[in-house]
Structure formats: C-alpha cells, structure tokens
C-alpha cells in the first residue's frame, strides 16, 4: 500500500472483518450446533415454551403462549395411580419450543428416539397435547414422549388430574420483564461457584432456550439451582412481597405489585395499609409483621414464584 491508497485499504478492511467474523461466529457456530439436547435442555424447553422475551404472540410480556408444567400421581386417562410424573401441557395453539420443530437443536439420537418411541411426529401446535421427557434405559439418550399419542392423555384431563400446576413458563417471562437477571445470574461458574450455587451447566443444556438470560452482573446469588437450595413456597412468597421480611439486609426490590388487585380469595390487597403495619412492626410497635397475601392463581406473582421454585 503506497501512501493513501484507499481502495486497497477498503479491501484489506473487508478481508480482516470478514475473516474475523468467520473465525468468531461461523466456526464456533458449527461446534455449538453439533451438540444435541441434554435431558435438562428438553425439560427446560418444554417448561418455557417458544420464547420468553418479546415476541409476536406475547408482545407485552404477560406470560401468554406458555405451556403448563404439571405433576401427576394418577393417570389422567384411566385414573389409576402412577409414579410421580412431570408432564408438560401445551394447550391448543401454544407454540412449541425450537427443539421440537428444528431437528438439529433436538439432536440426531434424541430425535430418532422421540419419533420411534415418543411418537413426536403426531404432535401439532394447533391441537396441542401433553409431553413427557424420558431417558432411554439402554443408551442413556433423553427423548420427548408425546403422551397424547402414546398414552392418550388429553390436555383437559391432564390439567384436571394434576396435583400441582407449575406456571414456570409464564414465570420466565416475568423473570425477563422484571429484570431479575440484572442482578441474578443463571450460570454457576465452572471454577469456584459450584460449591455455593450447584452444578454448572454443560454445552447441551441450553438447546432451544431463548433468551438464555445468563446475566452478567451479580448483585444477588446465582439462581440456576435455587429451587434445590430453598423449596419453601411460603418463604418465596414473603420474599417476593417484601424481601426485608425474611432477609433484613437484602437489597432486592419489592415485587408486591405482581400480586395484582386481589389475593387468592378475591380479597383486595391494600398495600398502603400493609406498609403502615409493616412499619409498625419494624419500629417494634407490633410483635408480628402483617400477613403476606397468597397470590391469586393467575397472578404474575404466582408465575414468578413457580418459576423460581422450579429452578432445581
């Protein structure tokens, strides 16, 4: 390049930038895409559905278009007792996660099993259905079972037979919308963190999840396995309503506005009065803090508590 030859400069610039993108996007993309889903990834996808952030079907992030995770102890079809089973209910029209619709995200072995043993090909978004995650005993490969086809479990019957409904999919939308991930990561680190925060994820654990919302800046503990450390729904409810109730030094914001207007019994929640009572307790005027209302069945508070408790 002689002095001020800009054409050559532009060509060099183009070569440098495209080589850089080839090395940093294309090559790792090949490696990452080669990894099939783990059992963890299949469960996560069936829990969280297609997309947890802004999307066409839930533009205001209200937790719509989400599957419901249920825990069953009896067969919804026959009513006979069965071993405790976690099933994922997609009501008609709920969009499937990418892992069910994109072969390479599911993984070759996983897909073959899901099709042969799980009858996955029969599932359609339009009709919805009930899914299970199984692991093949001989090979250890996880796969998705379409229980509506294999066992005849229908959506309505399954929801009715469920012991517990877990709205963790809608809860993840809350997690994104309320910015929980600005302070809590979902990524125990591989070096020191696992002693406190549990097993770090492995490569296939994220397949089909969007957004992954690892978070980057911790102002609170990592939450990837928080449901294993603390599985108390009462504690979580109090902590979300006012973290200072259970953790006097916590700097977490109060999320009492996620309760909506009324609690589970339809009783209107008076937050001003609750605050006054709480201040009286904090000053020592009353021996007990005011009771925290139990969130209504379809409240956003219920969603996020379900999500957090489901992070095993």
């Amino acid at each position: 390049m002689a002095f001020r030859e800009y054409k050559i400069g532009c060509i060099m610039f183009g070569i440098a930038l495209s080589t850089s993108m080839f090395v940093t996007i294309f090559l790792p993309g090949l490696d990452i895409s080669r990894i099939g889903s783990t059992e963890e990834a299949l469960k996560k996808q069936l829990t969280y559905g297609w997309e947890s952030a802004f999307n066409y079907y839930d533009p205001f992030l209200l937790g719509k278009d989400k599957p419901i995770k249920v825990v069953l102890t009896k067969d919804p079809e026959t009513g006979k007792p069965i071993d405790k089973t976690e099933a994922y209910v997609f009501t008609a029209g709920t969009h499937f996660p990418d892992g069910l619709t994109h072969d390479n995200i599911m993984g070759t072995k996983q897909l073959a099993l899901s099709k042969s043993k799980g009858l996955l090909a029969q599932a359609t978004e339009k009709r919805g259905g009930v899914f299970l995650v199984d692991v093949d005993v001989t090979t250890g490969v996880p796969y998705v079972e379409f229980a509506t086809a294999t066992k005849g479990w229908q959506v309505a019957a399954t929801l009715k037979a469920a012991d517990v409904r877990i709205h963790a999919g809608s809860g993840k939308t809350m997690f994104i919308r309320e910015g929980c991930w600005w302070c809590h990561t979902l990524l125990p680190e591989e070096t020191q963190d696992w002693q406190s925060f549990g097993r770090p994820p492995v490569t296939g654990d994220f397949n089909g999840e969007s957004p992954t919302s690892f978070g980057s800046d911790r102002k609170g503990p990592d939450l990837l396995h928080v449901g294993s450390r603390n599985s108390s729904r009462e504690w979580m409810t109090m902590h979300f309503f006012n973290p200072r109730l259970v953790q006097p030094h916590s700097i977490m914001p109060r999320f009492n506005y996620l309760w909506g207007k009324a609690d589970i019994n339809g009783k209107v929640i008076d937050r001003q009065k609750w605050d006054r009572d709480f201040m009286a307790y904090a000053r020592g005027d009353t021996p007990y803090p005011p009771a925290v209302p139990i969130p209504a069945r379809n409240s956003e508070a219920r969603y996020i508590i379900d999500f957090v408790l489901n992070l095993k």
């Binding site: 125990p188 591989e190 963190d193 696992w194 002693q195 549990g198 097993r199 770090p200 492995v202 490569t203």
Partner: peptide, 8 residues
C-alpha cells in the same frame, strides 16, 4: 471435571 460433575 466441572465442579462436582464429570462432563463431556
């Protein structure tokens, strides 16, 4: 070895 697990 990643933490307490042996991972691929």
């Amino acid at each position: 070895i990643v933490g307490a697990t042996v991972a691929k």
